[in-house]
Design a protein around this nucleic acid. Structure first.
Lengths: 143, 143
DNA sequence: AAGCAGATTAGAATTATTCTAATGTTATTG
DNA sequence: CAATAACATTAGAATAATTCTAATCTGCTT
């Protein structure tokens, strides 16, 4: 499957494998295939189900449970960022730089907004000496 | 149940009923009781399950389905605002003024941030002449 | 008071996700 | 380069949150 599959990886295999190893993950067949789908074709905002469909469509042999495992593991290792829009829509964003989002309510699509375009001022202190782990800004538009 | 129940409403019944009627909703027993729990004791960030427990605890006879119905109806009528933090945590906020939130990751609690404390500048245009229906800012703190 | 639209209900159904425990794969070690 | 241990994958069951269904009930209008 790896060298003669019907969809060759967009990224160099060795580089992908190294990226996984560098965060302490074994470059298994499934992770390699999913990582290629995720990172090999520009930034994506993708749901678990959609990635699973993508994988099946490209002939990758993987179970839905593994897709969830991989997405959560990648997120925990900082390779992805999870964006929850509502209780039935959770996206994994391959752009891990600090940035924000437009959310198109009709299509359910997300679009990145560069951090330079949103400035937060007079931000209150995190109470009690706690530290801020993340700031999410979602701009919902009605289209 | 309404006038001699073991928990009297904090709000004046007639005023609550008028509030419901003014948005086109019948002031039924269940809605009145839920509205009182929601609006009769200061701003709240509450989940459907928690409101259901509250209702049972105060002797209100209501089903979980009705709690969901009421929360969604109230939200659609603009009496509540729904805040989704992650796929398993959806809160209904009785504060419908424009404002933002701290989210305490350990406790799962939300806390309001007044709009005056967050300033968004250089906000990009909504694409295509679409209009912005809402902006959510969530600041996650690790405590 | 009657009738109807709207509301409520219990329980089944659905959806997204996680768990379980058996099997398979990768990396290491000698 | 075989044995092994640790990690990963899998199918299917289980769970959790929410929604649906269809029967019953209640508030409002006449």
């Amino acid at each position: 499957m790896s060298s003669s599959g019907n969809k060759k990886p967009v990224f160099n295999e060795a580089a992908l494998a190294d990226q996984l190893r560098s965060v302490g993950l074994r470059p298994t067949q499934q992770r390699m295939a999913l990582a290629d789908l995720l990172f090999g074709r520009g930034n994506r905002h993708i749901t678990a189900e959609a990635l699973y469909s993508d994988a099946l469509a490209t002939g990758v042999n993987v179970s839905l449970a593994t897709v969830y495992n991989a997405l959560h593991t990648f997120t925990a290792k900082g390779l992805l960022r999870e964006i929850t829009i509502d209780s039935t829509r959770s996206y994994f964003d391959t752009n891990i730089d600090e940035h924000h989002h437009f959310y198109f309510e009709k299509s359910g699509r997300l679009e990145d907004i560069d951090r330079a375009h949103v400035k937060l001022t007079r931000l209150p202190e995190a109470p009690d000496g706690l530290s801020v782990s993340r700031i999410d800004v979602v701009i919902r538009v009605d289209g």
